[in-house]
Each structure stands twice: as C-alpha cells, then as structure tokens.
Amino acid sequence: MDNPEVVLEVLDLVKRFDGLVAVDHLNFKVRRGKIHALIGPNGAGKTTTVNMITGENPQTEGDVLFEGKSISGRPVYARAQMGIGRTFQNIKLFSAMTVTENLMIGGQSKTTQSLLKYLADFRSARKEERHLREKAKEVLNFIGMYQYRDEIVNNLAYGRQKMTELGRTLMGEPKLILLDEPAAGLNPSERKEFIEIIQKVFETGVDMFLIEHNMDVVMNLSHDITVLNFGCKIAEGNPKEILVNEEVISAYLGEGYRRKMAKGAEGNA
C-alpha cells in the first residue's frame, strides 16, 4: 500500500449533498516532489474535494490516503498535525492580531508545554515562546514579510494577507500544502510574487496541491493536472497534454484559450 512516490491519494471519492452528487467517484494521486493542480469550471467540486481531504467536510464514500495511510474519519486538526496544511479561498486569518501572532499560532501545534508546567516553570515556557517567535521571524524572512511583522492583519492589503496565511501554514511544517485559489484577488505583480514564493516553498521539499482558475499560474507551476467537470474527472496529465485535450477545451478552457496559446510563446507550458 505504501508507495513512497505518492504523498496523497484519493480513492473513489464521492460527496453527496442530499440528492446532488458534488463529486462522483474521483480518483487521483498527488506525487511526491510534484505540484499538482486541480482545475475545472465553477461548481465542478474542487473546493469540495479539498474539504474532503482536510476533513472539514468529509466524503460520503471512498477513502483518502495520506502517505499510504487512510485518514478518513480523522478530525481536521489530526490531519493537520500529520502534515496537511492548507490556505483558504477567502482568507481565514486572525484579523485582530499581528502578523507575527498569526504565524505563532500556526506553529503552536508543534509545541509541547502544558499549562500547569508553564505556570510552574517560568523559564522553559519563555524559552518555548522565544523559539516560536524566532521561527516566525525566519518564516517571515523567507516569504518576504518581515517588515510587516508587527502590523495588525486587518490593516494589510489583500495580497499581504494571503502571504500571511501561507506563512501561518508553513509554521506547522506541513508535508503537503493545499492551496485553494492562491492567485484569486491578487494583482499581476502580487501574483508573480506569490508564484515565486510557492516555487520557493516547493523547493524546500513541500508538496503542493492547488486549485486555481488562472491558467497562467497553473501552467507555470504545476507538473500534474487533474480536470474536474460536474464532479467527474474528465482529464489528467501534464500541462501540455491538458492544453490539447479536446474535452478540457470544450468544458473549461474554451476555443479562445487554444488560440491564445497557439499564438503565445511556446515556452509558457
């Protein structure tokens, strides 16, 4: 069962909301050391799939394997502790707190100090707190957010907030990060920066699974692509294969995109 090549696998995943089948017998594998993208039109079941993987809205049928082990039935926090990090389509930050505090909370599941011990032993508690702060500082430097460390999140621009959320996820030292529309709402320069950071995080050995509408982002980043339509997988493959897949073009990309790609530089894919 345990395949070192595969970090995440979904098996015959089904999600029904009353009568509606949102995701229908979905299978795919996220390979280790690859960026995997899930694309498809609105309502295709992409976020539903992510929520099944994280456990926020578990599947009706099927199984989710993380590093070869079934994680179905486990609570959200347990899956996160195993190494599944995520960002949200609509940012979910602790908006009244500073950037550093947000990141520190992201790293807290890794801390071990108990409340009683903290109250009794002043010094080791301080040490742990300092360690957490240092780690937050490192991550902020890594994602280029150090200058915003003491800002209240609510006062930050949208792009900075998205970056903060990514930083908060990184604090939990995930093995796999699920990015739900990372480029949505970003302006072109922010988007470019975000792609660079994702690439940089990926190079440190974190696998990525992303949902994205922006095809430039998808084509730039991903190695594998799964295409969903009405809850069913209609195609799978590398970006080049997906771009020429007739079904994908008719369901999602549209003829216009093909022409644009044909005209555009070949190097893009």
């Binding site: 979910k92 930050l93 908006s95 707190m97 909370i105 599941s109 109250l119 707190e129 939990g172």
Partner: peptide
C-alpha cells in the same frame, strides 16, 4: 495568573478562537 495565561500561547489560542473559528483546526489545534 490571568495576565500570565493571557500572554501565553494559550491566551493566544483563546483569542484566535474568537477571531476566526474556522481557521483553528486547519492549524492542527483542537
């Protein structure tokens, strides 16, 4: 005692729950 707990990681978790309940679990916190 209140100040110590409020200023600790536990206090931070308390405030985080009030701020955004949905994000907590995805960070590995119960």
């Amino acid at each position: 005692l209140s100040i110590r707990i409020t200023d600790s990681k536990w206090g931070r978790e308390f405030r985080a729950v009030k701020d955004n309940q949905d994000a907590i679990e995805s960070l590995g916190l119960d």
